[in-house]
Nucleic acid binder design. Structure first.
Lengths: 187, 187
DNA sequence: GAAACCATTTAACAAATGATAAAAACGACA
DNA sequence: TGTCGTTTTTATCATTTGTTAAATGGTTTC
């Protein structure tokens, strides 16, 4: 997805404000398997996915738990670093060769203080992410594993085609074996 | 908690910007049991809790599921209404007699467009809520029911003392009977 | 204090999910 | 094509959680 559309989908900006953001964005490419963010590190960049797919995971004891997927148009951000300038708890791994738009967090924060439109764009960005997060929270609390799987299938069919099932099981909060059983029962 | 502290905890403002917000806030009182927000309604206000405690719940089939508690200093907001001007899916019930600070959403949105400091205050507000939401999401996905109960006990001891266990069980994503078993095993 | 009404705990059984291991399916590649 | 390595499915048993119902404990009201 192109950067203009990504920016506009969040909050429409005048030409001049939009240029200010776009001036501080560079396009970068990384191969499949690249670890974009490392846990326990303060991340200084913020990305949008132009092309490709990624996941965020953290460790519980020894096993990885995937808790986020991103695809074309989605932001990749370590909220702890972005908001509080603190170490994050997640790794972000690219699951395909990716084209990304990179923005330095520090630069963005300067723009927030200088340009009221960009401040409101940043406000809207977090508001929209918050709504996504709330919806997922409620799905986890309200729905059974089977329902959550069906919802993923309906809302993000490409994730299931492009990502291995062990990550999806983890994302759904169940084991891979359990997901396999669920898939067998649906057919 | 006093309004000055609540505002400052989110993002420090200059005197003039702070007055702008405070001018549009009124203090209101409601009794225990009052339904502050109704599901399937566009809410036009936004609150902070000065004194008291509240919960948000939604219906899944016939049974209520509690998915949020708020106490002194916390905001009460229907994100769907606040962000998208759409109907919310939750009721908010006051669990004690409450003193609240009320802010009209529309007024706040006007201020966002007029005052860059307030826009950044609003940005920070959603960022902080987003971090809370992410932490809860990860707790739901990573931790067992017993661990989640112990975490609630440690982080929000007053909730457990002030709220009936059926609501807490629902919040933890388990049945009341299951919570009772967990409590019995801990002792 | 007794009665009525809740909230909480306990008990018994059913259903869902986890853990472990083995089998099957799939892909990469010489 | 055949082999190797990885992913996914299937099978078995253990554990957790859900469901339903009854028992216990507390509070309010008359």
């Amino acid at each position: 997805m192109e950067i203009n559309q990504i920016i506009d989908n969040i909050y429409p900006l005048t030409k001049s404000s939009k240029s200010l953001i776009k001036e501080s964005i560079v396009e970068v490419k990384f191969p499949k398997g690249h670890i974009l963010f490392k846990a326990n590190k303060i991340e200084t960049s913020f990305y949008f996915i132009k092309k490709g797919i990624a996941r965020a995971y953290a460790f519980s004891d020894e096993n990885q738990i995937t808790f986020w997927f991103g695809q074309e148009g989605d932001p990749i951000v370590s909220m702890q670093s972005y908001v509080n300038n603190q170490k994050g708890y997640e790794d972000v791994e690219l699951l395909e060769d990716c084209d990304l738009y990179e923005l330095k967090t520090e630069k963005l924060h300067e723009l927030f203080l200088e340009d009221i439109e960009i401040a409101n764009w940043g406000r809207k960005f977090s508001e929209l992410e918050l709504i996504k997060s709330e919806k997922r929270l409620i799905a986890l609390q309200f729905n059974t594993a089977t329902e959550r799987y069906l919802a993923l299938l309906e809302n993000y069919p490409s994730i299931i085609q492009r990502v291995q099932l062990s990550y999806i099981a983890s994302y759904l909060g169940i084991t891979q074996v359990s997901l396999s059983r669920i898939r067998a029962n649906i057919k």
